[in-house]
Amino acid sequence: MASNSPQNGHRFSISKFNNLPGIQRFAIWLALFACLSLLLVVIWEPGVEFPVNWGAGLAAWINDRIKDITREGAFIFDAISNVVLYFLLFLEDVFIWIPWPAIIIAIALVTWRMVGWKVALFAVGSLLTTGALGMWTSAMETTALIVVAVVISIAIAIPVGVIAARSNLIDAILRPVLDGMQTMPAFVYLVPAIMFFGIGNVPAIFATVIYAVPPAIRLTNLGIRQVSSETVEAAESFGTTPRQLLLKVQIPMAVPTIMAGINQTTMMALGMVVIASLVGAGGLGEDVLRALSRFQPGEALLGGLAIVALAIITDRVTQAAAKGRQDALSGERQL
């Protein structure tokens, strides 16, 4: 009888509970939770430690597997290592062999034509300073390292991005993997990198690629997915093969976005320079690392600033390239 009239009823009911103000309901839930936890502690006495610890076993198992891979895959890793090293050393030689004024003039021309005279002025100034401060060879070594890492990244990113754009399943699987590659502390994969490739430039490039490749993959995927469905339908309605569709429609139209991805990849690769030196890469990163170990803040700062200068020049140039392509696509520039 009382429960039928909630206004003056005395019995507890769900509807009455739901009618209480939010803060009071929260307080009741909190009190219930506290009572239950207290009860659990009193009955079970679980203590501070977890009842099991499988971490050590799992880690040991992973260690063994990585050792297996190192042993079984040695011939593959050696082959990769040789090719990458050959490519890198060739580039380094070329960059160091070309007289520095020629390189500075070439970069000045490129930045001036593609970006503008302000950035060209900055490029010339910062490169001259780098040389004058005795870091020219290091800068060229770093440039060669970055070029190799970015080329490998692009070679991986474009096909993977294309596959991800075509399959929602692969996209869904890839997404957390790419997140992991970008957020995993670099030291974690530096260890197996050394095991696979030994100390030197090759594990450095390997680590750089792992860290730098995700944006290029993501933006290739995005760029292809962004191509308007009517454009794709229009192309298909004339009987394109999937290959023609990809090469003549989707990739050309995705180029500005892919270029933005390459720009980000390059920036992230430059960000890895010092960490890469931990496993034996030379160049500006090594200079900074050496300064760190000898407590020489001045040397560290100069090396760091040289990396920043390289980053700014590369960023402006790759951005301008992407924008030029975008303008060409939207028709602001005629043939």
């Binding site: 308007s228 009517e230 454009t231 339908e233 229009a234 192309a235 298909e236 309605s237 004339f238 009987g239 394109t240 093969t241 003549k248 429609v249 050309p252 139209m253 180029v255 060409a328 696509l329 939207s330 028709g331």
Partner: peptide, 20 residues
């Protein structure tokens, strides 16, 4: 593909031209 190439052609509401 052969059918689309030879028999038919389509005109689209928003043109569907290739901007590049």
């Amino acid at each position: 593909i052969e059918f689309r190439r030879k028999k038919t052609a389509m005109v689209f509401q928003h043109f569907g031209l290739l901007p590049h």
